[in-house]
Each structure stands twice: as structure tokens, then as C-alpha cells.
Design a binder for these strands. Structure first.
Lengths: 225, 225
DNA sequence: ATAAACCAATCATCCTACAACTTTTAAGGG
DNA sequence: CCCTTAAAAGTTGTAGGATGATTGGTTTAT
């Protein structure tokens, strides 16, 4: 089953394997892990070793155990879990400020490094935004809007930036929604996004900076109301 | 010694207490923990419970155990440890980009919200930079320079931003040093910092933005060489 | 004096047993 | 037959002991 990687302890090996099973999607978020007995046999370790591994992951935020019930997958990424905890302790405005800082940088980087397929995705997002706005579907609009911003960050081609942004955006979903709902100026959003996309498309960093700053300032204005 | 917080499992309680002892400085980074036997008695738990707690902290990156030798404190913050691991996997440029994104935002926020004591600290840092530059003490200069940037971020008055920045800066210390050494244009650094401080002092957001962007662009230019 | 052998301290792993909690099953009364 | 309730089974939590593996220092022999 497992080879003797002498540099890693048994516990570390088990932790690693469990992490892989979670990250690979074999155990999805929310699903229940097999009981300890089965896992002991599966990994060929004692109960202590297995439990130490599981507890390490519980503390890391990836798993959650309930006595008498079982162990479930709580999160699929250690960074996400750490961010969750940290965000829970800080206030909403602070988190949004950081998120916008990342977005500002992302727009500038995207203008330099975006690929052709990024453009396609962003265009699709804007189309979805327009459709939703025309139909007056607020929920749908916000969903497409967030997708646009995530895609924008992805186009920046920086994995760490993307990870941080997404792990910061997801826990804030409803808060963002609230800010967006405050005044539903669909048209404004639509325009900004189009202009920003155009700048990124032409790799015009200055314009991209200008438009993303406009958007961020508008967002912050709403936030302070 | 042991408080009965029945909400938490014994393991979690032990983890919490160890974390507190580390964060409070009772056990400093690099120091050795007492052997398991003593800790068992101190926390009044069994060996399994204690070991599960210690291993959780090992996996979190706060502790490090060596068979036959003992357990030492490796880091004092979970976020820092997570960052360390994540940064180790992504490349240097990506991390620096994110760090600069945070710094850009910090400068703008600092221009709005800095207190009087922030100004004093920043002035002191610049003074130290100048002294070190005049004496040609590179090491000292870089140290003071980093302190200036950290203080700048602190003046932004955003705890999450500060935590992320610091935990991103510390693991990059030597990399930053390398970039700074590349060409030691002390004068340039000195000027930018003075101008930036002046803008922050006068709560002039536009100027602060301008100067921090200059600094960041210069830094990035060096990075790409 | 140096290197090999030894020894004590310490962590790593495994084992068994029982306690506490949850879910499922079954029994009993209406 | 249905509902309530009690028993049973399943699962994680805690305890304590036994043995192996590794490290660091000490002693001993050359």
C-alpha cells in the first residue's frame, strides 16, 4: 500500500493521503468519511496514528468530527480554512478593502498578460450580465457579475492572487450581494465592465487602471452609505 | 491550570492552551517544549490526547518534533505558517506581486486614516534609513526600509491587511534583500519615502497613490531584471 | 586524543479498554 | 397501525501501557 518514505512520519503520510483524496474530489465537501475502523484498514495504520492525522486536519479546518456521528469534509483547502477563520475575526469593511486591493492589481496584471481565452470568458460574462439586467433578474446579474470579477482575476495569471481572491470572495457572497442591491444601477456596472474589458483586450494598462479604480471607488462609496 | 470548557474537546483545549503559551511568548520561537510526560501532567490529559494536540500544531506549522530530541517552537502564527507553505509552492514573483498590491492599497488608506503616532514612527524609520545609507550599512538600511513599509501598512488601520502583509513579508525577507541589493540606489529610495511620507502626513491621497506607484513600478522593474 | 560502543531520554507506533454521544432498531402501549 | 420510548449498535473521545526507533551525550577501549 504505502512505501517507506522515511523522511515522512506515518501520520504525515496519512495526512497527505487524506488531503489528496479531498483535493481530488474523491471525498467532496459535506460528505462523510468512512468510520475510523475502515480507514485504519485502508491506510494500514493504528487507530492512534489515524486519529492524529484526522485531528491535524480538523485543526487545519479541512475536517469536522462529531462524536457518535462521524467525520465530514468541511473545506477543500487549508488556505481557504485559514482565511475563513481570519475573516470571521475581522470586520466586513476590512475584508472588502483587501479584496479590492487584490482586484485592482489583478486588472492591471490582466491587461498585460491576458490570453485570448480569457477575453472570451470575460465577454461571455458581460453578455450574461446584460441579459440578466435586461430581464431585471437581480440574483442572476450578481452571479454573473461575480463570475466576471473572478475571471478577471484569473486572467492576471497569478495563482496566489487568484487563491486569495476567491477564498476572500466566497465567504463574502451575501455581503457583496447586499452592497450591490443597495442601488441597482445596472447600467453603470454594465458600462464599467465593458470599458474595462476593452482596455484589457487592447492591453492598455493605463485605461484598465483607470476603469478598475472607477469601479472600486464606486463600490467603496456604496459601502460607506 | 485546566479550565473546564466543556464546549471544546480535550484535544482542542490543549491546542488552545499551547497556542496561547506560544503567542504570549511564554514559549519563544526556537525554544524546546518540555517532554510529553511533563506536559501530560501539566495539562492533566493522557498521552494520546496530548500527542494529538501537538501533532495538530506540527501540521499547522507552529511546532516541530524530532524523535529522540524533543519538540521545538517553529512559528508563532498559523497564518504565517500557512503562508509559508503556500509561498513555498508558488513562485517568488507571484508572491511579491500580491504583496505590492497590498502595499499599494495600504498607502492610500494610510493617507486617509493615519494617526499622529503613525507619522512619528514613519519619520523615525526614514531617519534610520538615511543614517544607514550614509554609513553605507546595507543590512541595516534594508532592515529599516522593511520597517518603514510595515509601519506604513500598519497606518492603514486594517488588521487583516496588516496580517497578510506581514506574514507575506517575513518569509520573503531574503528575497526582498536580494532585489534591493541588485542596484543599491540609496538615494532613490530615500527620496520616494520622504515624498510618500509627506503626502500621507498631509492626507493627500492622490500624491500618496502617485508615489507608491512610482516605488512599486521601480521595484517591479528591478524584479524583471 | 580519537573513535567505537553504550546508555538514557524522547518521540513514534501500536494495542486494548472503556466512556460519551448519535443513530438505528425494536419493543410496548395506545 | 402508529407513536413513544427504551434498548442496541455504531462511532468518536479519552485513558494508559508496551515496544520500537532515533537522537544526544557518556563511557570505554585502542
Amino acid at each position: 500500500m504505502l512505501k517507506k518514505a522515511n523522511r515522512m512520519s506515518l501520520v504525515e503520510q496519512v495526512i497527505s493521503q487524506i488531503e489528496n483524496l479531498i483535493e481530488s474530489g474523491h471525498w467532496t465537501v459535506g460528505s462523510k468519511l468512512p468510520p475510523e475502523m475502515e480507514l485504519m484498514e485502508k491506510f494500514e495504520v493504528s487507530r492512534n496514528t489515524l486519529r492524529e492525522a484526522i485531528h491535524a486536519l480538523v485543526h487545519a479546518g479541512l475536517l469536522e468530527t462529531k462524536q457518535g456521528s462521524g467525520t465530514i469534509v468541511r473545506s477543500s483547502s487549508a488556505l481557504e480554512a485559514t482565511m475563513h477563520r481570519h475573516i470571521a475575526k475581522s470586520n466586513l469593511v476590512e475584508t472588502l478593502e483587501v479584496r479590492l486591493a487584490l482586484e485592482r492589481e489583478a486588472a492591471q496584471l490582466a491587461a498585460k498578460r491576458r490570453g485570448e481565452e480569457d477575453i472570451d470568458i470575460l465577454k461571455t460574462c458581460i453578455k450574461q450580465c446584460r441579459n440578466a439586467a435586461d430581464k431585471g433578474e437581480l440574483e442572476e446579474f450578481i452571479s454573473a457579475d461575480i463570475k466576471f470579477h473572478k475571471s478577471l482575476v484569473k486572467a492576471a495569471n497569478n495563482q496566489l492572487l487568484q487563491d486569495l481572491y476567491e477564498h476572500m470572495t466566497d465567504p463574502l457572497y451575501f455581503s457583496i450581494q447586499d452592497v450591490m442591491v443597495m442601488d441597482s444601477e445596472f447600467d453603470y456596472e454594465k458600462e464599467i465592465h465593458s470599458e474595462l474589458l476593452e482596455a484589457i483586450c487592447q492591453k492598455n494598462v493605463e485605461d484598465a487602471t483607470k476603469y478598475v479604480n472607477e469601479y472600486i471607488n464606486e463600490f467603496k462609496k456604496r459601502l460607506s452609505r
